[in-house]
């Protein structure tokens, strides 16, 4: 008799538990729906009552990790303007900063390649796909990593170099430059360098010109590949903006004299951009300034570049 009583009691408890949990589950779904929408006073009242019901089931913390979000507090905080001072004052945290930076590089690098640039795009309003505040954050992280590696080269081995190479495709003013400089603080393999060179194609304007100058000391087998990348940028008639910017930096690419002259000849076409405008004065000045920087005596007018003046 007593055992029947126990069985009946257990069944009753189970029935109560099942009905209660399923009810809670249905309610919590409603809570979620309400919470995701605009808050209204009525909705708030509803949420308030529902949460009260489920309050006894608050989960207790299972464990506590000691990890602190030092990256956000020190490197990404809007209050911390000078990364180098912050790093100097927190040398004991470099390990954590570096670890968290690697995570940030991985996440931001991926989402900055999406169309909405980590959710920064808006349908209506200001949006520069190559210059968002997420780019700025990534650049700060790269600057911090670079400084840490510069002062403690052992961190270099801990870098995920493939991910950093991936950043050199991002057409932001600073990201590819900082990423390349970070990689070049240590030894990169020929394959990696070659990949970095090939990523230059994704960049435009002064960014590409600057990026190619960062890569101006390639390993011996890749010297020709670097020169080819410079020539390709100069000769691309569909992107005269980039060609002009590369022309302005010719002296920084460690070209030999014959390569230098070849580069100028490849960019002669820039003196007429197809709009009928005579750009020879600009091209002439670029050639004169770059020749002077290289220590060559070169008369631009004798190169045969000058286009007829269009009237």
């Amino acid at each position: 008799m007593r055992s029947w009583f126990y069985i009946a009691f257990i069944v009753a408890v189970m029935w109560f538990a099942i009905s209660h949990f399923s009810d809670t589950s249905a309610r919590t779904n409603r809570i979620k729906k309400l919470f995701s929408s605009k808050k209204t006073m009525v909705a708030q009242a509803y949420v308030e009552q529902e949460v009260k019901l489920s309050a006894p089931e608050i989960a207790k913390p299972k464990k506590q990790t000691e990890e602190k979000d030092v990256l956000s507090e020190l490197i990404l905080s809007p209050e911390q303007q000078d990364i180098y001072t912050v790093l100097d004052e927190n040398k004991h945290l470099w390990g954590e900063i570096f670890d968290q930076s690697k995570g940030a590089v991985s996440k931001l690098g991926k989402c900055l390649k999406t169309l909405d640039r980590c959710g920064e795009r808006r349908d209506n309003g200001y949006f520069d796909p190559n210059r968002t505040s997420t780019h700025a954050d990534l650049n700060r992280v790269l600057m911090a990593m670079q400084e840490i590696v510069r002062q403690s080269p052992s961190f270099y081995n801990d870098l995920n170099r493939n991910e950093i190479i991936g950043l050199t495709e991002i057409n932001n003013n600073n990201t590819p430059i900082l990423a390349a400089q970070l990689l070049l603080t240590g030894d990169v393999s020929d394959g990696e360098f070659s990949q970095m060179l090939s990523n230059a194609k994704s960049l435009t304007g002064p960014v590409r010109a600057m990026y190619l100058s960062v890569l101006a000391n390639p390993p011996a087998p890749l010297k020709q590949a670097h020169v080819s990348a410079v020539f390709a940028a100069l000769a691309n008639r569909n992107d005269r903006y980039t060609a002009m910017e590369v022309q302005k930096k010719l002296a920084q690419y460690n070209l030999t004299q014959s390569q230098f002259v070849a580069a100028i000849k490849k960019s002669c076409y820039l003196s007429n951009d197809g709009s009928g405008e005579n750009l020879w004065p600009i091209v002439r000045r670029n050639i004169a300034v770059q020749s002077q920087a290289m220590g060559y005596i070169l008369n631009p007018d004798k190169l045969g570049c000058q286009a007829p003046i269009v009237r």
Binding site: G205, R240, Y241, D273, S275, G276, E277, I309, V310, R311
Partner: peptide
């Protein structure tokens, strides 16, 4: 600067010549 260096790229600037008479 980018627009100035790229007249040919923009339909609204194409064919414009500042040195024209």
């Amino acid at each position: 600067r980018e627009i100035r260096s790229n007249f040919a790229k923009y339909s609204c600037m194409k064919g414009l010549n500042p040195y024209s008479d």
